[in-house]
């Protein structure tokens, strides 16, 4: 009987005691998480109204940010986007507090490591977002400038600029995350250097005559044969 009590009943009693001890933390944690969800939803709606009332969308329209976001595939208004981000931020804060309330050492250690790594994820995401927007913007600027300069491969130039910025942003974000840090940088340098070298060689050798003709035209000022005065 004593053996049964020590092998079966005592561990169950211990487990029961632990569950009883853990239950308040768990319930507090669930409560905090629920409050977090409600608060995030309410504050998101509140921030959206405040941002809209402040005319934030019109301001960002004037600065060209809305267009950049649209071009980048983000259809939301700036007010909606910012209020969503704030809502998610609030929810994340409550999730962290709720998990700490559980008072489980392994969860705390994981949480600590995640919190230390989280800024890297945030910065990497920002780099990717900025790179995507800037790539589209600069690609279009290069395209328009090349067309106005009469360059026949304008489309290629625009795409080259756009994807170069994308690749650069991708490389930077991977570096920020610490994924294959040296490998990514070396690979990027090799690929980018290779592309530039290939272009230089192909322009210098393959297009030697075109380059010569172009430079001659530029240096001799024969480019602007039209004498139309536009103004």
């Amino acid at each position: 009987m004593e053996i049964i009590r020590r092998i079966v009943i005592e561990p169950f009693e211990g487990l029961y005691a632990k569950i009883l001890g853990f239950l308040p933390n768990f319930l507090a944690s669930v409560l905090i998480f629920t409050v977090g969800i409600v608060l995030a939803v309410v504050l998101r709606a509140l921030f959206f109204r405040i941002f809209s009332a402040l005319g934030m969308d019109k301001f960002f329209e004037r600065t060209g940010t809305v267009e950049l976001l649209k071009k980048g595939g983000l259809g939301d208004s700036v007010a909606a986007l910012l209020s969503k981000l704030l809502g998610w931020g609030i929810l994340i804060v409550f999730v962290v507090i709720a998990m700490r309330t559980l008072d489980i050492p392994i969860v705390e250690r994981l949480l600590e490591r995640f919190l230390l790594y989280f800024p890297n994820i945030f910065v990497a995401a920002l780099i990717v977002l900025f790179g995507y927007l800037a790539g589209n913007f600069l690609g279009r600027a290069a395209l328009i400038a090349s067309v106005n300069a009469g360059i026949r491969i304008s489309g290629t130039i625009g795409k080259f600029v756009k994807y170069t910025v994308f690749v650069l942003a991708g490389t930077m974000s991977l570096e920020q995350l610490g994924i294959g840090r040296d490998t990514v940088i070396i690979a990027f340098a090799l690929v980018f250097g290779g592309v530039v070298l290939a272009l230089s060689i192909s322009f210098g050798l393959g297009g030697r005559d075109i380059a010569k003709e172009y430079l001659e035209r530029k240096l001799k000022g024969e480019e602007g044969k039209d004498e139309i005065s536009h103004l």
């Binding site: 067309v147 489309g155 625009g158 044969k225 039209d226 004498e227």
Partner: peptide, 23 residues
């Protein structure tokens, strides 16, 4: 008199049609 290269101007326009139509 003013010298004008119409052919080149039309080429510039056609280049715009090919590349800038999305805008």
């Amino acid at each position: 008199p003013v010298a004008v290269n119409v052919e080149r101007m039309i080429e510039r326009f056609s280049l715009g049609v090919r590349e800038l139509m999305d805008i």
